[in-house]
Design a protein around this nucleic acid. Structure first.
Ligand SMILES: [Mn+2]
Ligand SMILES: [Mn+2]
Ligand SMILES: [Zn+2]
Ligand SMILES: [Zn+2]
Lengths: 139, 139
DNA sequence: AATATTTTGCAACAAAGTTGCATTGTTGTA
DNA sequence: TACAACAATGCAACTTTGTTGCAAAATATT
């Protein structure tokens, strides 16, 4: 696992630092998407807030993680699949945010359907975000 | 127009105040979606920031406006159609955010397609947000 | 017009995000 | 391994965004 993380950083021409290794590991372990605040907590304030902001930004630029828009002003981040690279994201899966527990899921098995836009509109990225109750919170 | 605005407020059992009238008029005039910051500017700091926050919150609760999630930490708001009411939003159209000019459009003519989620996930709201270049910014 | 109810503005605060710069850590090379 | 070049980090200071309690003002009700 530590090897895998080092590989990802090397492949993206990023120097291997404690912050990057730890944050990347957190994404790997958690499985789900995380907000900046989650990372701050889960790394038990090991790193400065600024470092976390900058690390997330770097990871997004390199195509290691992708952002998930929300209606509550707290963007979530999740690991990308291998196809994403610097400046090229190909995360066309649906995202689900649970209103109960707040967990954000990448629903890899459901693809975002293509939609036809009116004349003159050119799509660069499409985000399909569904909120509701997740499979752990339904009773 | 002033009448229409008063009607909307009355219909929703909201007292008619300067802030509510002005902010509702701004939505009507602008046609597009607005972020909290836009409203603050366009009302030329006539109202306290807190009032704007509370007004937007009230409007969302009453089904007068709906929110549009974004990946840049600035939720946009736009007028709902008549079908929306207190606690019940039915805004199933696509949203478009221009990367160039920042304008956010409600694409009323394109509906959000239904997607099938994995077992146990129950959708309450679905948001399809597309970013790219709008019809005014394409050259 | 008088009273009851809501809304507003203010102050104070909390959370989120940004920037510049000195210090520290990492990398490639000798 | 040691060194120099470079990149990342932490800190401080700041801006922006959002929240809460409460007194004053505006609105609705009688
Ligand atoms: Mn995802
Ligand atoms: Mn809309
Ligand atoms: Zn849940
Ligand atoms: Zn545009």
């Amino acid at each position: 696992m530590q090897d895998k993380i080092n590989d990802i950083l090397k492949k993206n021409h990023l120097s291997i630092t404690e912050a990057r290794k730890k944050i990347l590991a957190l994404f790997w372990e958690s499985g789900n998407a995380m907000a900046h605040g989650d990372i701050e907590q889960k790394s038990s304030e090991e790193f400065d807030r600024v470092t976390i902001y900058r690390t997330l930004q770097t990871f997004v630029e390199k195509g290691i993680i992708h952002t998930i828009p929300t209606a509550d002003n707290s963007v979530r981040y999740a690991l990308c699949k291998d196809e994403c690279g610097a400046g090229h994201h190909h995360d066309d899966h649906v995202h689900f945010i649970c209103d109960d527990c707040g967990t954000t899921y990448c629903i890899d098995e459901v693809n975002v359907p293509k939609v036809k836009l009116p004349k003159g509109f050119k799509a660069a990225q499409t985000d399909l975000v569904i909120s509701g109750t997740c499979n752990k919170c339904e009773q």
